[in-house]
Design a protein around this nucleic acid. Sequence first.
RNA 1: GCCCCCAUGGUGUAACGGUUAGCACGCGAGCCUUUCACGCUCGAAGCGGGAGUUCGACUCUCCCUGGGGGUACCA
Length: 441
Amino acid sequence: MRLRFAPSPTGALHIGGARTALYNWLLARGGGGELLLRIEDTDRERSTPENVEQIFDALRWLGLDWDGDPVFQSRRAPRHAEVLARLLDSGRAYHSNATAQDVRAFKDRHGSDKGFRGEPEPGGAVRLHAGEGEPLRVADVIRGETVFAREHMDDPVIARADGSVLYNFAVAVDDLDAGITHVVRGEDHLSNTPKQLLVFEALGAQAPVYAHLPLLHGPDGKKLSKRHGAASVQELRDAGYLPEAVRNYLALLGWGHGDDTKLSTDELQRLFRLEDVSRNPARFDEQKLRWLNGLYVRELSPRELAARLEEFTGRANLLEAARISQEKIQTLADFWPLSGFLFDGPRDDPQARERVLERNGAHDVLAQAREALAAAEGFDPDAVEAALRAVVEARGVKPKDVFQPVRVAIAGTTVSPGIFESVATLGRAETLRRIDAVLGP
RNA sequence: GCCCCCAUGGUGUAACGGUUAGCACGCGAGCCUUUCACGCUCGAAGCGGGAGUUCGACUCUCCCUGGGGGUACCA
């Protein structure tokens, strides 16, 4: 099995493209196949080095590798010209000056379901004869056979008047030269496939097996875009998702294995089959990604989580904070808002202070908790718990009547990791300092 | 307009002619509980519509409707 992922570098790698890359990669890595990366950069304006770098970057972060050096389609221009000349010589292609208007005029005369047929002329763009007779059949692993009648097709333009070739021609030639056996790509290419089939046919070559993946949509069913939140791989990374969780989630958009939801990358490689890919378009549901990401976050060792958090936040020494935050965060981005107070001081949440600290008795409770913590023997979570529970006991109040004031005193808000762990992580001196700051002189 | 693809709860999917239509996210209720989470229990929610085929259709066929893609001397 020889596969390829062929993005055009027109911007960030979208999650749809990421899923296409993932499926190709799963197939190659799961079945001893090969995966080529081809950059389709023949659109001179949109293909910038920065955009190419973004693609590499996204694939690297996702953990998807490829075999050999990436192929840049633009550098294959000489080869394309050579094949084009061959087609012209053999009469399978011809020069034509017909414009889009001419094509429309042709359809006005012959019916809008009649494909345009041109006359060979001395110059102009190059068109391929679509011919007549047997229809073109796209053998698609996912959707079965799709038939395209030649009569419906216009003779496709395969090269501009200046000799530069067009996408559908370049793709077919490149896939052929690379010995690609399976083309796995988005469904938006299905309608283009007959044009590519025409190229294979004109070259007397056999076409690869195709698999057109259902498209990915935003939550509203429309095309995925920035306003749907994280729509590109880099945005996913910035939003604090783990690459392994993203791989898992993306694999599930359009594919599944029984009732399984959480599937490791190893399992995905083993279980993924093109035949099981769904035919319906799927919507990107960030809530489910968040949930799944939370599963992966909780599965990490505290050391590993700390390492990821350190890279994500750019801060150091997060091990203890990571440990006590682990079951409360779903993404790496959730960490700092929850536990940043351990490092940067209490957060400023006037509402929390008002509701918790300015209640009757709160100061007395806090003063008593302070004394208990000051006198505690040791300062690990157990010692802290013993000290604070003693205060609860002594005052005959509910646990939260003691814990919440302490929490707001040290964190500035009503939400934090477990109070005993938080206090212990903060340390005795800092805890007392923060409580004193609330109690005032 | 023309060509093509698709159609199970809000979302992702399972069922491959006979099931009380399963699972997961999300949502609601409850339990747990120091906040928030996690976890557990329970619950609401679905086969787009119409004709066929068949003893029997979510499953097969056709039509309609709805969504999507293509229709460039873009990729």
